[in-house]
Design a protein around this nucleic acid. Structure first.
Lengths: 210, 210
DNA sequence: CCTACCGATCGGTAGG
DNA sequence: CCTACCGATCGGTAGG
């Protein structure tokens, strides 16, 4: 009697479909990132996720579809974060040095703001469903490739040591920034931007805000 | 009829107890690191581990005791690796610069030689049994603390930027080196020592072999 | 959004 | 070192 599902709920109001259902789903995704970060993908049960958001385990399936859906959504968010970081770095300036400084700041910020999401992304890399795994690997390779290009630009400008392979330098920079997910303490003295600035100084690039 | 187990097999030869049983156990530990690195601790089953070493799943328990035993052994190995790295760095020279260079080389080497063991160590950090978890956290804190001290020494010698907190610098260095577990390719052009030397140059420390 | 429930699989044991 | 097996728990469905 109905068409192929117009928009979900009420045909009367199709302009603002962000309803309770969407909020609940978003909440479930956040909690799932917590649970998977703590117990791993296989160890984190739908029962525990449901319990933390105040649902029975079967009700969980009214919002999510399957457990794979969760890790898929998490992977997609990190994917989007990496793309966003690249865009911001590229738009910051024509100067590759400023681009790389901006990238370090924005990437560190992204990792630390969505710490548990990145944790799941990195730890459950092998648990991704086939389709999303392929996409994720491709996008991450593109990300590293872009950073490598920025490093090359900085080397040609004489601002990074030329006797280090650009690829290794790029991995080193991303390693410094990524590794913050393990030691960063939100209650500690250092904040994400301060940490990123420290990374820049350590490799001989001036602060971004000068 | 027997005492509380003299040495396992034959009372006649107690001098060389490294027998088939020990070799099998070692093999199981290696395979377990592979399986856990691929599928996580909860996702890696005793059945799969047993199958890869050519045993039935119940026979697995003749060598191991429990699944927790496996992750306990893995954690202890990383623990020992970190201690060994510290000792080598400390013995290398009285000069903190050479100590830090040595530490970077030895740590990178350890991570890449036992890549899957470190992978499990870092990814299953929250899956450790209570007792080993406490020990691991203590030893890792001590490791970071020692590296921070070396950084401080290098700063006082004017070889590392003094306007970066020693703790953040230490984490950055350990981050660069640790992150190699994600991107290192044994078939690729770069080898562990070359990568470590690149890290040293990137942060303004000369090569260790000069 | 819940109660009731299913098939599958897991870690581990019995008993030889 | 294996066959047979157990209790527990998991992801997901039925049916309302």
């Amino acid at each position: 009697m109905e068409g192929p599902r117009t928009n979900g709920t009420d045909p009367m109001r199709t302009d603002d479909p962000v309803t309770d259902h969407d909020r609940r789903r978003r909440q479930i995704l956040d909690v799932a990132a917590d649970v998977f970060a703590e117990r791993g993908f296989q160890g984190g049960t739908t029962k525990e996720i449901a319990k933390r958001v105040g649902l029975s385990q079967p009700s969980f399936y009214h919002y999510v579809g399957s457990k794979d859906d969760l890790v898929r959504a998490i992977a997609n968010q990190v994917d989007a974060d990496m793309k966003s970081v690249l865009e911001k770095a590229d738009a910051a300036s024509p100067d590759p040095v400023i681009k790389l400084q901006t990238l370090i700041v924005e990437f560190t910020r992204a990792v630390l703001v969505n710490r548990r999401t990145f944790t799941v992304y990195w730890h459950e890399y092998n648990s991704f469903p086939q389709d999303v795994a392929a996409e994720v690997r491709r996008d991450e390779a593109a990300f590293v490739h872009s950073v490598t290009d920025l490093v090359r630009g900085c080397q040609e400008a004489g601002r990074l040591p030329a006797d280090v392979t650009p690829g290794v330098t790029a991995r080193a920079i991303l390693g410094m920034a990524s590794w913050t997910y393990r030691w960063y303490n939100p209650e500690g003295p250092a904040d994400p931007d301060g940490i990123a600035a420290a990374f820049c100084r350590l490799i001989g690039l001036a602060d971004p805000e000068r």
